[in-house]
């Protein structure tokens, strides 16, 4: 699939739709990276605490920032045990904004996983401080990419198209898998939940597991 995409993209890039280089340069000038410090790239520190101790629970929340040596992308999960996935209180949003101001040049990104916030420009010497402060503000769930990192559509609670409620199912699953050791033992696993056959919770049915609501004569079932 990747090779096909590359071939297809190249044929468009080199074909009748080829862009004038001055137009490309003009557009590129509108996307600027922050004024990064010249830091030494030191990826192992992204997975260690302030005293150099290993922090395996946190490691999956960090990725190297590919545009800048010495910086990391930090993911904060808003998928609490027993709560609606992705909900953030005003206080949590204020706290995330403060973290962005302090550590990430004031930038926050909402990821394609929806409901997860990313700080894209955190110096690698800073992630442990980010996480400590995020934990203090209940943005502390170290379940990124684990079974409780669930995407749920709004479901019958908020959507008139739905046949079934999605959020209570997500809350119950997150309670069943609150043991992070068990979740880590299962490894990377994504559950997407949709309240009807339109499957908004998982476009193209791409999740590892994907319950969808259906209405049948016996009542509301899921499939």
């Amino acid at each position: 699939m990747r090779a096909n995409s590359r071939r297809s993209g190249q044929s468009i890039k080199d074909g009748a739709l080829a862009l004038d280089p001055t137009v490309v340069a003009d557009i590129a000038a509108r996307f600027r990276y922050p004024d990064y410090e010249a830091l030494e790239d030191n990826p192992p520190r992204t997975g260690t605490g302030a005293r150099g101790q290993p922090l395996p629970r946190l490691a999956r929340q960090f990725r190297r920032q590919p545009q800048a040596p010495g910086y990391a992308i930090v993911t904060l999960s808003l998928k609490p045990e027993g709560g609606p996935p992705g909900d953030a209180t005003a206080q949590q949003m204020d706290a995330i904004a403060d973290l962005a101001e302090r550590y990430s040049f004031g930038e926050i990104r909402a990821s394609a996983m929806s409901r997860i916030w990313r700080l894209p420009h955190v110096a690698q010497r800073g992630p442990s401080g980010v996480v400590a402060r995020a934990r203090g503000n209940r943005g502390r769930h170290a379940n990124v990419n684990l079974i409780s990192d669930i995407i749920a559509c709004p479901g019958l609670d908020y959507c008139s198209l739905a046949n079934a409620r999605s959020i209570p199912v997500a809350e119950e699953i997150s309670r069943r898998f609150k043991d992070l050791d068990l979740a880590r033992n299962l490894g990377r696993l994504h559950i997407n939940i949709s309240g009807c056959i339109n499957a908004c919770g998982s476009p193209s049915h791409r999740a590892h597991r994907h319950p969808r609501g259906r209405e049948e004569r016996r009542g509301i079932l899921t499939r």
Binding site: M1, R2, A164, R165, V169, E172, I173, R176, H190, S202, S204, H205, R206, A207, H208, R209, H210, P211, R212, G213, R214, E216, G219, I220, L221, T222, R223
Partner: peptide
């Protein structure tokens, strides 16, 4: 319930696994 979908560079559609599941038994 579908199982086995992937959204990464090895994108794959999930397969329907068995019959429908009652709402109250999904977590089980």
């Amino acid at each position: 319930m579908t199982i086995g979908g992937r959204a990464d560079e090895n994108a794959e559609l999930g397969k329907i696994l068995g019959p429908a599941v009652p709402y109250g038994e999904i977590a089980d």
